[in-house]
């Protein structure tokens, strides 16, 4: 997926809040919920929620992405859990 780095923001945005499987150039696979794709480096931020609370965050650099496959769509609850992990509390009302 060499064109991953050259995709448009609206194409990357489709992956936000979705559960995906990212395959890297060294043929490793990582699964998680997409918090964002950096439009500058095309890096994917994957979040795995831990049972004990908190989360594990894995960022795959854009140049190392070979393929991204959507496994499952996220709902509003996932979207707000992702947001509350990273956003300061006062910001939440302003992001739709």
């Amino acid at each position: 997926m060499s064109e991953w780095c050259n995709m448009l923001p609206q194409e990357w945005y489709k992956y936000v809040n979705q559960e995906v499987k990212v395959t890297t150039r060294d043929k490793q696979q990582h699964e998680g919920w997409v918090f964002t794709v950096d439009p500058v480096s095309a890096s994917v931020v994957l979040v795995t929620f831990l049972e004990k609370g908190g989360a594990f965050v894995m960022v795959v650099l854009g140049h190392a992405v070979r393929d991204v496959q959507i496994l499952r769509g996220g709902d509003d609850e996932i979207a707000s859990r992702l947001r509350s992990l990273f956003m300061p509390a006062g910001c939440q009302a302003f992001t739709s």
Binding site: T24, R25, D26, Q28, G54, A55, F56, V57, M58, V60
Partner: peptide, 8 residues
Amino acid sequence: MISFSFDL
């Protein structure tokens, strides 16, 4: 780098 990770 290929990737980086941390606990939050």
